[in-house]
């Protein structure tokens, strides 16, 4: 047979590609449940690491089941909030059916649209609440994401963990691999007075007196800019919730002993504290805090 004719070439390549695609689809379908269980455990380990319960390395040694159990034991509540910081739904935290809001890519889009459904994971450690929220954005080569852990009133960052899809090993990948980069987040705070840019990652070194900035990684400017933008975008989306938490802690005695653990202080009017109009009628007003 003439293997160099046009018809033969076209039929042959088509056949090869179809066969390859079929093999890959079958493999992907067969392996998917196992892969998703891994991803779930990975996401949970990232949160536990950010919240300071363990380290990523130790959790990796535990295996998926124990990581899930550890999450269930330490979590107090997990829920979803809307753009105004009001609670809209619960996430299951029982070990048998842990629910996570981990499609951060979709939520990132929803933040731009002004209609997000953002997760808040409230852990409890030594009697203190730890609020863990995610962030997501674009690095140099692909998506980057991570988790920030705040203290009970969301005024101080307790820890952070970041991950990436395909940043350059040794440079951009240091947002994940370099513990000293993540350490910098401890004790920092978001700048509530500047909701558009509540946090900075500064090339060449952040001023020591700036509590809302850390040093960028040398040689990873694009990744650091992307992470900065990711934190800013997501922190801005969470801002109403975080501000309510902070206001509750300073303003109202009732809230200090934990009656507002659902995070939105229903029944208490704190709106005068920060000039937002978002009590219980959040259906039709304009969000002035959405990304352009």
């Amino acid at each position: 047979m003439n293997t160099n004719s046009n018809v033969y070439t076209i039929v042959y390549t088509t056949l090869i590609v179809v066969v390859a695609a079929a093999i890959l689809s079958i493999a992907a379908m067969a392996l998917k449940p196992k892969q998703q269980a891994n991803i779930k455990a990975e996401t949970i380990s990232q949160m536990l690491t950010a919240a300071g319960f363990s380290s990523k390395e130790d959790l990796a040694k535990l295996g998926n089941d124990k990581v899930l159990a550890m999450y269930s034991q330490n979590i107090k509540t997990a829920f979803l909030i809307d753009a105004e910081g009001n609670k809209t739904g619960e996430l299951e935290t029982e070990v048998s059916g842990i629910e996570l809001q981990d499609n951060l890519k979709l939520e990132n889009k929803n933040i731009q649209n002004g209609n997000p459904s953002l997760p808040v994971y409230v852990f409890e450690k030594d009697g203190q609440d730890i609020n863990v929220i995610p962030c997501y954005g674009a690095g140099l080569w692909g998506p980057i994401w991570g988790y920030l852990a705040f203290n009970a009133d969301c005024t101080e960052i307790l820890g952070a963990y970041f991950d990436h899809d395909s940043e350059t090993p040794g440079l951009g990948a240091k947002i994940k691999d370099e513990p000293s980069f993540r350490e910098q987040f401890k004790g920092k705070k978001l700048n509530f007075d500047n909701p558009d840019n509540p946090f900075d990652i500064v090339k060449g070194g952040a001023p020591a007196d700036n509590l809302s900035a850390i040093d960028a990684i040398t040689g990873a400017t694009m990744t650091c800019n992307g992470l900065d933008a990711a934190i800013d975008t997501w922190a801005k989306a969470y801002m109403p919730f975080l501000q309510k938490k902070a206001a509750a802690a300073t303003g109202d005695d009732c809230c200090e002993d934990g009656c507002c653990e659902d995070g939105c202080c229903e029944g208490h009017d704190h709106d005068h504290d920060h000039g937002h109009d978002h009590a219980h009628h959040h259906h039709d007003h304009e969000h002035n805090h959405q990304e352009g």
Binding site: T3, Y12, T13, I16, A20, I23, L24
Partner: peptide, 16 residues
């Protein structure tokens, strides 16, 4: 394998 698309066919196999 058609000689003209040899490399592409190889790449498909390797990528698979």
């Amino acid at each position: 394998i058609p000689n003209r698309v040899r490399i592409i066919v190889q790449l498909v196999v390797v990528a698979l």
